[in-house]
Amino acid sequence: MTTLHVLFFSTHHALWAEEVLRTAGMTARVVAVPRRYSSDCGYCVRVVEAPEPAIAAALAAAGVEYDRIVRDTDGVSS
């Protein structure tokens, strides 16, 4: 199972992103940022089994500002 984390500059954008991604049919949930990732805010959005381009496209279409998307397995910024 592929898990991605979307990191944000603002908690408000994280919560908005959760709503946008769920509306797009993805399994998304706001969680506290895992300690292994640095982030500008305390929330990130965990997305399960969704392709990264689809996540990026949905967020861009809504105008959600985010920092980056990282894979949970290796923590490498993509």
């Binding site: 603002s10 908690t11 408000h12 994280a14 919560l15 908005w16 709503e19 706001v30 969680v31 506290a32 940022v33 805010c41 305390g42 929330y43």
Partner: peptide
């Protein structure tokens, strides 16, 4: 809202949103 990572804080944030 937005000050802690727990689910109640997120729920408060959803109300603000």
């Amino acid at each position: 809202p937005g000050r802690s990572g727990h689910h109640r804080s997120a729920e408060a944030g959803r109300i603000v949103l």
